[in-house]
C-alpha cells in the first residue's frame, strides 16, 4: 500500500493565561502559558488531580476554559461553537486510558469511527464507508501492527491490543495532534513499553504533535522529548527529558518518590508485535 500523508503537519498549540475552575470550585488549571511546536513529543507528569487530563481535554474542547484562551494553529478555540469544535477535533486524535472502544463492533468499525468527521454523515450513518476511508483505516491498523485482527470484535482483544485499536482510531483521523490521556495506566509493564514505543514511532514517522499524560516517571524520562510538570493545575516544570532530575520530580510531586512512581519491570526489550 502506498505511503499516505497521515498529517497536515500543523499541530501547534498555545495556551494564553488559561485557567479552568470547575463548577464545584476545584481549580483544574491556573494561569497557564504554554507553547507547543508542531511535531513535538511532550510528556505531561504530575500526581493525580494535578490537572493533566484537564490540560489535554482543554485542547480538544472536552473541557472549557473559564479564563484565557487556547489556540490550535493560531485559531482560538471556542467551545460554544459546535461547528468550529468539530472542525478542530477532526484534526486532533485522542487516546484514552480505558481505550473507549465500542466493544460489540469489529476492530475495523472502531477505527473507522476516526473517519466520521471526514465522511458525509448520511454515508457513515448507513455504514457505506468510501473506499478511500476504508484504506486509510486499514493503513492505520497496519501502523500499529494488528491488521490480522481487523474483523475481530473489539471485546475479544487483550488490553494492549485494544489500546492499539485506540491509537489506530486516532491515526485514522489523519490528525495534526494526538492527545494520549494516561494511555498505559491500565496495561501491564510489557505492553506499556510496546504502546509507548508505538506512540514515539508514530510521532517520528508522521510528525504528529503528541501529548502524553503519564503517571510513571521512568516512562516520562525514557520516552519524552520535553517534560511538562503540573501541580495543582499550575505549570511547575518545563524542560528537556534528558536533563530532568529526581529533584525536579520531587518538586513536581511535592513529595519523595516511591516505587509506585515507576514501572517496575524494565527488562523489556524488543517486544514489538502482536502482543498475545
Amino acid at each position: 500500500m502506498s505511503e499516505r500523508p497521515m498529517t497536515s503537519r500543523s499541530g501547534a498549540i498555545r495556551f494564553h493565561d488559561a485557567g479552568i475552575v470547575y463548577p464545584n470550585g476545584v481549580v483544574g488549571m491556573k494561569d497557564l502559558d504554554l507553547e507547543i511546536q508542531p511535531g513535538e513529543f511532550v510528556v505531561i507528569v504530575g500526581s493525580s488531580g494535578a490537572g493533566k487530563s484537564t490540560l489535554l481535554r482543554a485542547i480538544n474542547g472536552l473541557n472549557t476554559l473559564t479564563s484565557g484562551r487556547v489556540e490550535i494553529n493560531g485559531e482560538a478555540l471556542n467551545t460554544g461553537s459546535t461547528r468550529q469544535l468539530r472542525r478542530v477535533r477532526k484534526n486532533i486524535g485522542m487516546i484514552f486510558q480505558d481505550f473507549r472502544l465500542v466493544k460489540r463492533l469489529s476492530v475495523m468499525s472502531n477505527v473507522l469511527i476516526g473517519r466520521l468527521a471526514h465522511v458525509p454523515a448520511w454515508r457513515s450513518m448507513l455504514g457505506l464507508w468510501p473506499r478511500e476511508d476504508r484504506e486509510i483505516a486499514a493503513d492505520a491498523l497496519k501502523r500499529v501492527g494488528i491488521t490480522d485482527k481487523a474483523w475481530v470484535k473489539a471485546s475479544q482483544l487483550s488490553g494492549g491490543q485494544q489500546q492499539r485499536v485506540g491509537i489506530a482510531r486516532a491515526l485514522a483521523q489523519q490528525p495534526a495532534i494526538i492527545l494520549a490521556d494516561e494511555p498505559v495506566a491500565s496495561l501491564d509493564p510489557v505492553t506499556t513499553h510496546q504502546i509507548m514505543r508505538d506512540l514515539v514511532r508514530i510521532n517520528r514517522e508522521l510528525g504528529i504533535t503528541t501529548l502524553v499524560n503519564l503517571h510513571f516517571l521512568d516512562l516520562a524520562r525514557e520516552y519524552g522529548d520535553r517534560i511538562i510538570g503540573l501541580r495543582f493545575g499550575e505549570l511547575v516544570y518545563d524542560g528537556s527529558a534528558r536533563t530532568v532530575t529526581d529533584e525536579d520530580f520531587r518538586d513536581i510531586y511535592g513529595r519523595d518518590l516511591t516505587a509506585d512512581d515507576v514501572v517496575e519491570d524494565e527488562a523489556v526489550e524488543g517486544g514489538e508485535g502482536g502482543g498475545e
Binding site: N60, T82, V88, I92, R104, S109, S124
Partner: peptide, 27 residues
C-alpha cells in the same frame, strides 16, 4: 466514554448515537 470518544474524533451527537450507543444497546 465511547460517546465522548466519537465526539472527540469530531463526530456529531447523532453519529455518536449511531456508532457508540446503538451497537452497544441494540441487543
Amino acid at each position: 466514554g465511547t460517546v465522548e470518544a466519537v465526539e472527540a474524533a469530531g463526530g456529531s451527537r447523532l453519529l455518536a448515537l449511531r456508532w457508540a450507543v446503538l451497537p452497544a444497546v441494540l441487543p
